[in-house]
Nucleic acid binder design. Structure first.
Lengths: 341, 341
DNA sequence: TCCTCCGTGCGAACCGGTTCGACAGTAGCG
DNA sequence: CGCTACTGTCGAACCGGTTCGCACGGAGGA
């Protein structure tokens, strides 16, 4: 494998001159630059990443910590990963991926050994145990998901409060007065998945204000449990005319459930979910939904992280906490409630 | 950040001694080793990955090339990624992920710059343009998916021929005599997705031998197209009593389609898919299916790759091409064909 | 008593880049 | 004509590990 020494020898210059010719950090005559570039092409030279990292303390690699927990919905996470990965590549960074269950170990390994210039944490819990480690690390970090304490990190998330209000308002305007909200498993909440109650609390508040009855329940993240639970809740609240889903698995399971019960949306039941358009297309979900914009969120997160890595953010520029406004994508699954029997 | 020099100073030894004490590659007295280990703990020392890579030409990182093409089904790919990632971690390796559309560029970057010790290629096409680059690289590579030319790489894949036979045999034994096979989009085949016709050809041959009529069609990988196509094909072959799916999107779309048509499996139609159990659970697919075992395949691939990286495989140990035998997971979606009207 | 051998530890070189300081040559200017 | 300033290049040091060769001291054998 060719080194910069080989390039220098072929071009008839010193190693330092070859380096400067390639980096452009000092003025180099056109003649010499040409010879160096020719040598690079001739030898097929590519700089050794380890050596460069050692010399510059920059790896051009971003760590991506994604935990695939048993009770969360894996394909939803993929969308965020792709948003992060693709944007990182655009900005010249590669992705070191960890799917380890023990995120703290992975994070410590990556930061301590200096494999990465910065790190993105997905699916951040309210009191995420990775955060103390991240704050102690020399590399900057950016999160998708809102923890209780945001000091020292940049944070991006969907505005789940607004999403909850939006769902309720939308159905209220159409005339619905009794709704069901199916959230993630309670276990997710206990583990600190704050977005669950952020949406739920806001929805309940909006319902109270509008005089709408809202039945909030937790749902499993898996078949066949979630299917049974959907059936049960539809039976428990027969007068409910609107169904709000903050649970991807529930959305994926709903077509079958409605089929079994002989129901059609929006004729018999209006349905609003919270997931990405990509998700809806992939799983052929015909329900209107709050766009969760994982690709956009992932992209924003990486962009801010790279700004910090490259110091474009002033050395002490305050950390940001930014919420993406939810938008309702109309897929025709909501309408006026059915006339009462 | 502490370096090995700091450790050596605190322990009162030379850098080389500290290194040997930690690696165990030379005899070191218990006394000195104890002092070095204490210094490591005191300073929180972790070796710098770049420096180590430079010195040893080993990065303990495996490249993972996953292309998310518009006309393939993203969540299915995730399963393979997780299989690879988790097994790699078990073996002490980290994963450098590329989701770049242009896999050749990513592969060249990773190998040329020596960021990785080996690479796993997912979703390999028959004449995959990444293969020539991989063969020219100094690092070993392992594939998931069967290319036309397997020289110089280790290859793992599901036995799609056997899968095709198994699907047809299973329904034939139950009494079915007219079947429909929905494959991936023709575009996937054109691009070299050999597994499509590997399964299809074997299914057609088995059907011929058994005297079963088999209608083979391509299906889109997206909504709403695939839904329309499923409807169309069910209408075109009203006497078909069995449906074979080698297309994840079709499987995901089928519940809605059957609902619309008022059909129930297996009463009106027997259905067999080809996807993973994880996939079935996640998307609440109630159809029996050939287990595609992505986690197992991903794991096998990494294990073999690591053997090669670490030279446990003899220097010239021949490369392997290994097929996983398909197994049918019964979810109760097949039965005797309905009595003819 | 002397030589050899083994167990331990050290010094120095090396991996392949980047970057600082020095310096020769030339141009510009008074 | 001499001084300064600038341009372009080089040599050397450095990043943080690993590893080879060597030296030292004590034990064992002849």
């Amino acid at each position: 494998m060719a080194t910069i020494g080989d390039v220098a020898r072929v071009a008839g210059v010193s190693r330092s001159t070859a380096s400067y010719a390639l980096s452009g950090k000092r003025a180099i005559s056109a003649d010499v630059r040409g010879r160096v570039e020719a040598a690079v092409r001739e030898l097929g030279y590519t700089p050794n990443a380890g050596a460069r990292a050692l010399a510059t303390s920059q790896t051009m690699v971003i760590g991506l910590l994604a935990q695939f927990l048993e009770d969360e919905f894996a394909p939803a996470m993929l969308q965020y990963m792709l948003g992060v990965s693709n944007t990182a590549r655009e900005l010249g960074y590669d992705i070191l991926l960890s799917t380890e269950e023990d995120g703290t170990r992975a994070l410590r390994r990556m930061t301590d050994s200096r494999m990465i210039d910065g790190v993105v944490l997905l699916n951040v819990a309210e009191h995420d145990e990775r955060l103390p480690i991240l704050r102690a690390a020399p590399q900057p970090g950016a999160l998708v998901g809102l923890p209780a304490d945001c000091t020292g990190v940049d944070v991006f998330d969907l505005d789940f409060e607004e999403a909850g209000r939006l769902m309720v308002d939308h159905l209220h305007r159409l005339g619905h007065r009794e709704l069901i909200l199916v959230s993630q498993p309670e276990h997710v909440v206990e583990r600190g998945g704050a977005y669950v109650w952020r949406l739920q609390n806001a929805a309940e508040e909006a319902a109270r204000v509008r005089g709408v009855m809202l039945h909030a329940v937790f749902g499993a993240a898996r078949q066949p449990e979630i299917g049974g639970e959907l059936n049960a809740v539809l039976e428990a609240y027969p007068d409910a005319t609107g169904l709000l889903l903050n649970n991807e698995a529930a959305a994926a399971a709903l077509p079958t459930v409605l089929h079994e019960r002989g129901l059609t949306a929006p004729r018999d039941l209006s349905v609003v979910g919270r997931y990405s358009d990509e998700f809806a297309r992939t799983f052929s979900l015909p329900y209107s939904s709050i766009e969760s914009a994982p690709d956009r969120l992932g992209g924003m997160t990486v962009r801010q992280l790279v700004r910090r890595i490259e110091g474009d953010a002033g050395p002490a520029e305050p950390h940001v906490v930014r919420f993406v406004s939810p938008e309702l994508v109309d897929r025709g699954s909501t309408g006026a409630p059915p006339a009462r029997a």
